[in-house]
């Protein structure tokens, strides 16, 4: 079997062009060598960029890890700071809630209202919208008839804490009146819900 015959034998399929076996027989060996030479030269050209790529990838990965690390740890600081701010807000929220609850106590409301000159109405009437009639004989409440709550205001520990030195002293007093306003107006700029940034700053 000649080399030419072998080469023709490679061709399969009905679409393949039939080559004349005699014509390229002398040129074939030289054609085989050229691809060999080319193959050896290609890796040499590719190897250098690959190393560079590896190096860059490494540097890139390192930088990424570094940046991630920094951001995580700075995030950690921020987290601690925010936790502190949150705790602080919870505390002031508790304080303000207590104040509201205390003011909402019915006996305190009654006392405040009568301080402001409100009086209890003594007579009631009803308007029937169906037949537009007024039932009862409502009269305006006489002024100056001060309602006084017979129930003592809640004795919250805030109002009268005992101290090591003097039981009569009132540590909670200024907290109730002064502290929230100071914290409130200074830090909240007149608002009601403080933003964490303002507290942090």
């Amino acid at each position: 079997m000649s080399a030419a015959q072998q080469s023709t034998a490679i061709i399969h399929g009905n679409t393949a062009r039939v080559l004349s076996p005699a014509e390229p027989s002398s040129a074939q060996p030289s054609k085989r060598r050229t691809p060999l030479a080319l193959v050896t030269s290609t890796p040499r050209r590719r190897r250098a960029p690959f190393v560079v790529f590896c190096f860059l990838a490494l540097v890139g990965a390192l930088v990424t890890v570094l940046v991630l690390n920094i951001s995580v740890s700075s995030g950690q600081y921020e987290l601690v700071q925010l936790h502190a701010a949150q705790a602080e807000l919870l505390k002031s929220n508790q304080e303000l809630t207590q104040q509201v609850q205390n003011k909402e106590a019915p006996q305190n409301l009654v006392n405040e209202a009568s301080e402001l000159g409100m009086v209890t109405s003594t007579s009631v009437g009803q308007i029937n919208l169906k037949n537009m009639s007024v039932a009862g004989t409502p009269k305006p409440a006489p002024a100056g008839d001060k309602t006084k709550s017979l129930i003592a205001a809640p004795s919250l520990p805030n109002d009268k804490p005992s101290t090591g030195a003097d039981a009569a002293a009132v540590p909670g007093g200024p907290a109730k009146a002064g502290a929230p306003t100071a914290a409130g107006s200074a830090d909240l700029h007149g608002g009601t819900i403080p933003a964490p940034e303002q507290k942090n700053g």
Binding site: N158, G164, A165, A175, P180
Partner: peptide, 13 residues
């Protein structure tokens, strides 16, 4: 020694 009992968190702060 005890300085003050039952103070609010605002005072504590």
């Amino acid at each position: 020694s005890m300085i003050a009992k039952d103070v609010s968190p605002v005072v504590e702060q």
